[in-house]
Design a protein around this nucleic acid. Structure first.
Lengths: 213, 213
DNA sequence: GACGCAATTATACGGTCTTATAATTTCCTT
DNA sequence: AAGGAAATTATAAGACCGTATAATTGCGTC
């Protein structure tokens, strides 16, 4: 038996890409891996395979896997906030209309989605263990609360009711949204998305009636 | 150099235990491992070492690690619910008093604790991937909501205000609690625990004022 | 069109993981 | 006090993982 000319093994062809292209490609592959397998999907090998490249690229661009995951977190959080804010601005140009649109967008299938929570739970786990991730989270959280704060404050001004501490009210509203999202994703039988949206509206009704004054 | 009499290696002594003892011992070791390292702490080797036994016992009693983790989840969830319910019953024997005590207990350092969330995040991740864990979660969730539902319904009866759907109101209240817990643990600078409790009280005030009628 | 640098692939090493299996010990029963 | 079933330990096999290093190739530049 002779294996004559195969002295050198063939090597895969590849295409060079810019750092931005590769980073985003790897970041999106990371999110897809986590969507599919949760924590079990976070591995340099799997992510590289999902992106169609070799593991070395992760080391090359991010040094270690955690750094790539942190990048993916920012990518996804920004996308979600952008989508919700865009939805809010696309609604009727009144404080009430924008807040309604914000709520509606939060309960839309793109976000009220088990797969999305699956990704988020992995991020939470990392935030609790990595100062690097924690810093990113604080930034993203502030953006969410600030956005809600503006919506609530505009509504209060338009309708003439008082809120003692708008920032805290926004914290509560955001917590209610996240809590409903979490509960529904873990157990979709607990309530209907529309019921969740109604509960948010009722929270706002409490605000109107001076419960937070 | 001679190693004369050591033909047979010594074997560790051990004590037989009842299935209940061992299960609980392993379950508690599991929780300690997760508290310390999150997902990274979920491994048969580490848990067995933490419990001071060998890995074989986990296979012997639980078959696979996931089954042990599900057991640990039930253990911890029951403990927490019991603690909060006990606190509620220890408060003044009025609807208002019990609800206040429930809120206060929820924001106590034993629960409003990063380490506790760290454990919970791991459980959430598993719930989203394992039907077995999901069933446990649904049971625990129902217990929490039912408890709150009773508290709210008693309060409404005592004070004479209306709630259209008490179950949904309880879902919202629970979501608010979980959302605040999550936000604070991920970012303790976001607000003070007392501020969180106040936000819950204000939610109840909205209930009183008929926002959920 | 050849050159050379950086992007990318390929490969190897040491470690931990899960599960399975065999050997040993405890303790209940008689 | 002896015997035996079940609990427990010990060990091994095979897979994956993260990181480091060397080899190759794409592609801008001269």
């Amino acid at each position: 038996m002779a294996k004559p000319q195969a002295t050198k093994k063939p090597r895969a062809q590849f295409r060079r890409a810019t750092p931005d292209e590769r980073s985003r490609q790897l970041g999106e592959a990371t999110i897809r891996c986590i969507r599919k397998k949760g924590n079990a999907g976070v591995s340099a090998r799997q992510i590289a395979a999902e992106a169609g490249v070799t593991q070395g690229l992760i080391t090359h661009y991010f040094g270690e896997v955690n750094e790539l995951v942190a990048y993916a977190f920012n990518l996804m959080a920004d996308d979600i906030l952008d989508a919700i804010v865009a939805a809010a601005h696309a609604g009727p140009a009144t404080p009430q209309g924008r807040l309604d649109a914000y709520i509606e967008a939060s309960f839309s299938p793109a976000i009220f989605d088990q797969d999305v929570l699956r990704v988020w739970v992995v991020f939470w786990g990392l935030i609790l263990h990595s100062p690097r991730m924690s810093m990113s989270q604080q930034k993203e959280y502030s953006s969410f609360v600030a956005t809600i704060e503006t919506l609530l404050s505009d509504l209060a001004a338009a309708e003439g009711f008082a809120i003692r501490d708008t920032r805290l009210a926004a914290v509560a509203f955001n917590a209610l949204l996240d809590g409903l999202w979490l509960a529904w994703c873990l157990n979709p039988a607990a309530f209907q998305p529309e019921e969740g949206a109604a509960l948010c509206q009722q929270w706002v009704e409490g605000l109107r009636r001076g419960a937070y004054a």
